[in-house]
Amino acid sequence: MNFYNNHLINDFFIKKYELLSLNEIKLKKKFFSFFKYKICIINEKQSLRTVNSLINVFNFFNIKYTIINNIHNFKKENIKDFSKTLGILYDYVFFRGYNDIILKIIAKFSGSIIINILSNGFHPLQSINDSFLIKNKIIIFFGDFNSNVFRSMIINLSKLNNFLILIISPKIYWNYTFLKKIFIKNKIILSEKIIILNKKVNIYNDVWYSMGETNLKKKINNIINYQINKKIIKN
């Protein structure tokens, strides 16, 4: 994941040529080796799938790592001092947490390479992989446009700039500030109505809510008509 000792805090940190290089490396099955590095996994927000997927990869390649599950570090300790301690002990820090600002602080003061494996704002590792699985030039996003997975996917697809992205979502979830930051020349369509295209498309969705999220009933009522079902797939 690391090209020139750069952090991967969110998908804005990945340049187009880096994204394409990762895909080439993946196709040739030539992966970066972490054998000589000291690695730490910080699991601030407990996550079964995300963290265990990473652990399984490390175990498969016999890569040694340390896990920090103690959220005491973020509640009671000075985050700058904590970051400096991380830098002394580890070369790479894989972080699963809540706050994207904390990621930036650790990146600034630790001296370690920070990899965001999932935060409230972004999900770069999933989006990088998923962007290589897109087979059609039209991608339809259904549901909550503010999902961290959606946000990361849209950023990376905009770099490849040969896609038409159709976001079908309630207007209350439209984030114009985010879109203006990304789509200056790229093609994107926002719609509250479900649009059926007579073409091959990729349909993309994310879970409607995550662990710890509140107001679930209200959110479900907002997006109940934007679910992926047999009728959508048939059309």
Score class of each variant (00 low, 15 high):
Ile106Trp: 06
Ile115Trp: 00
Lys29Leu: 14
Ile63Tyr: 15
Asn205Trp: 07
Asn129Thr: 15
Asp11Gly: 11
Leu48Ile: 13
Asn205Tyr: 12
Tyr226Leu: 08
Asn148Arg: 15
Ile228Arg: 08
Leu133Ile: 02
Ile113Gln: 07
Ile117Val: 14
Ile182Trp: 02
Ile184Gly: 06
Ile140Ser: 06
Asn59Val: 02
Phe74Met: 04
Ile68Tyr: 07
Asp130Ala: 06
Lys36Cys: 15
Leu160Tyr: 02
Ile167Thr: 01
Leu216Met: 04
Lys231Phe: 11
Ile139Lys: 03
Thr177Arg: 12
Ile117Lys: 00
Leu103Arg: 03
Ile196Thr: 14
Asn23Val: 05
Asn235Thr: 11
Ile117Gln: 00
Lys15Trp: 07
Ile106Leu: 14
Lys75Ser: 12
Phe32Thr: 02
Thr177Gln: 11
Ile189Asn: 02
Tyr204Pro: 01
Val149Arg: 01
Ile155Gln: 05
Phe141Trp: 10
Ile140Met: 05
Phe141Val: 07
Ile88Thr: 12
Gly111Pro: 06
Asn235Tyr: 12
Tyr226Gln: 04
Asn5Ala: 07
Leu20Val: 10
Asn69Tyr: 14
Ser53Arg: 02
Phe74Ala: 07
Val149Gly: 00
Ile195Gly: 05
Asn146Thr: 15
Tyr92Met: 14
Lys75Ala: 02
Ile172Trp: 09
Phe61Cys: 02
Ile79Gly: 00
Ser83Asn: 11
Leu190Ser: 05
Asn156His: 04
Ile168Lys: 08
Arg49Thr: 06
Ile55Val: 15
Phe109Lys: 06
Leu103Ala: 07
Lys135Gly: 03
Leu160Thr: 10
Ser147Asp: 03
Lys200Ile: 08
Val149Ile: 10
Ser147His: 06
Ile154Ala: 00
Ile106Phe: 08
Asn23Met: 11
Ile168Val: 15
Arg151Asn: 06
Ile106Ser: 04
Ile224Asp: 03
Lys29Tyr: 08
Arg96Phe: 05
Gln126Trp: 01
Gly121Gln: 09
Leu89Asn: 11
Lys171Leu: 13
Cys40Val: 15
Phe60Glu: 05
Ile220Glu: 00
Asn161Pro: 09
Gly111Val: 09
Lys104Asp: 09
Ser152Asn: 13
Leu125Ser: 10
Tyr37Trp: 05
Asn215Thr: 01
Val93His: 00
Tyr173Gln: 02
Phe3Lys: 15
Phe58Tyr: 10
Asn52Met: 10
Glu213Tyr: 01
Ile165Trp: 00
Ile155Ser: 12
Lys185Ile: 05
Glu213Leu: 04
